[in-house]
């Protein structure tokens, strides 16, 4: 019995909690990608770098707050700086839309033209981020590090395995849930949100109904920038901020959006968790876990790790391929143009 509890605690500590946090971060990223796809109809390759840009802006404001002695008590100062980061990222997105994408929209260019243009934007954002904050790792989490410490948990429960809950993980989940609720409320209950869905569903009919495309596009960019910044800041708080890592997140984020069904917000969230849990469960070493559950003589010698951690990108990719092969529209029937 104790063994089973130990195994469960171990599993929660190394798979469940990290998977939930990572899944929430991916889901927020995938929501941004999927919204851009639904409304503007292209895969935005600059989304990872938009995340990096928004996070950088937030970090700079955080540092400024810290230098002024402003803090958020037990919570990270970055949460206080987040709205400013979002605003800066939104301004940047709108500027890029005005400078780059609006031209191609007017010409009704092919989606792939937008994708290549987004590669150009990706270069620019990447350059700007590295120019301002440099290519190195930045840690900007402050405040209380843990909600539950492994040692305290062991002492409290008497189990040999400890359960740690870092505050950044809890913050990630709480913020992600709030954001998703707010987003769905916006999309399903407000006039503008419904107009966005209508525009995404049938552009011509939306025009006939008097929906202003310019406003829809603007609101979409603002929301995408907000989602990107929030996802980026949560990821950075949980792990650390490094421009290149954010660029690499593009792959699992796209995988999440496509697996869920691109263009479908519910799918993006489901996809985020599918990808995150696949990555974590496949790269987790089950040696200790099985050690608790199996009788002593059957305990495994090796790490019992399906794949080395370095192959986590491969996991999202394989899932992506399987979904593309067997259900190209994704789990939640997105739109396939």
């Amino acid at each position: 019995m104790v063994d089973i509890l130990n195994a469960l605690v171990l599993f929660s500590n190394f798979v469940l909690i990290p998977g939930l946090a990572y899944g929430a971060q991916l889901a927020l990223g995938a929501l941004g990608v999927t919204l851009i796809y639904a409304v503007l109809r292209f895969s935005n390759f600059a989304h990872g770098d938009l995340m990096a840009f928004g996070t950088m802006a937030t970090i700079l404001v955080t540092w400024w707050f810290q230098s002024m002695g402003i803090s958020f008590g037990v919570l990270p100062t970055a949460l206080l700086a987040l709205p400013f980061g979002i605003a800066i990222a939104a301004v940047m997105s709108l500027f890029m839309d005005r400078a780059v994408y609006s031209f191609y929209r007017k010409k009704r260019a092919a989606p792939v033209t937008f994708v290549i243009a987004s590669v150009g934007v990706m270069f620019i954002l990447n350059g700007v981020v590295r120019l301002i904050i440099g290519p190195d790792d930045q840690r900007f989490a402050d405040g209380e590090r843990f909600i539950v410490r492994a040692r305290d948990f062991e002492a409290w429960s008497g189990l040999s395995e400890g359960l740690a809950l870092r505050s950044t993980q809890a913050i990630t989940l709480v913020v992600a849930i709030l954001i998703v609720i707010a987003l769905f409320w916006f999309l399903n209950r407000t006039r503008m949100g419904k107009a966005m869905r209508a525009y995404s569903d049938n552009e011509d009919l939306a025009l006939l109904s008097g929906i202003d495309p310019a406003r829809v596009v603007m609101v979409t960019w603002i929301i995408a920038a907000a989602l990107a910044t929030i996802a980026g800041v949560l990821y950075g708080l949980d792990k650390s901020f490094k421009p290149f890592t954010y660029f690499q997140l593009l792959l699992p984020i796209f995988a999440a959006a496509i697996v869920g069904g691109i263009g479908n917000p519910v799918g993006a969230i489901a996809g985020g968790f599918v990808i995150a849990f696949s990555e974590v469960t496949v790269t987790y070493a089950y040696k200790r876990f099985l050690g608790h559950l199996l009788p002593e003589n059957l305990a495994p010698d090796g790490l019992v790790q399906l794949l080395s951690t370095d192959y986590k990108f491969a996991v999202s990719f394989v899932i992506l391929v399987v979904v593309l092969l067997f259900r190209p529209t994704g789990l939640f029937r997105g739109k396939v143009i």
């Binding site: 292209f42 895969s43 390759f45 989606p111 792939v112 994708v115 690499q248 593009l250 792959l251 796209f254 995988a255 496509i258 691109i262 080395s308 370095d310 192959y311 990108f313 491969a314 999202s316 990719f317 992506l320 391929v321 593309l324 092969l325 190209p328 396939v336 143009i337």
Partner: peptide, 28 residues
């Protein structure tokens, strides 16, 4: 074989993925 029958965006993502995997394999 996997990605060409599908939409252009998917080919892009698939190739992006395979290149990251190739590098991961070579690194590890």
């Amino acid at each position: 074989k996997i990605a060409l029958g599908l939409r252009s965006d998917y080919l892009a993502i698939a190739t992006l993925g395979i290149s990251e995997i190739v590098i991961a394999v070579l690194k590890n």
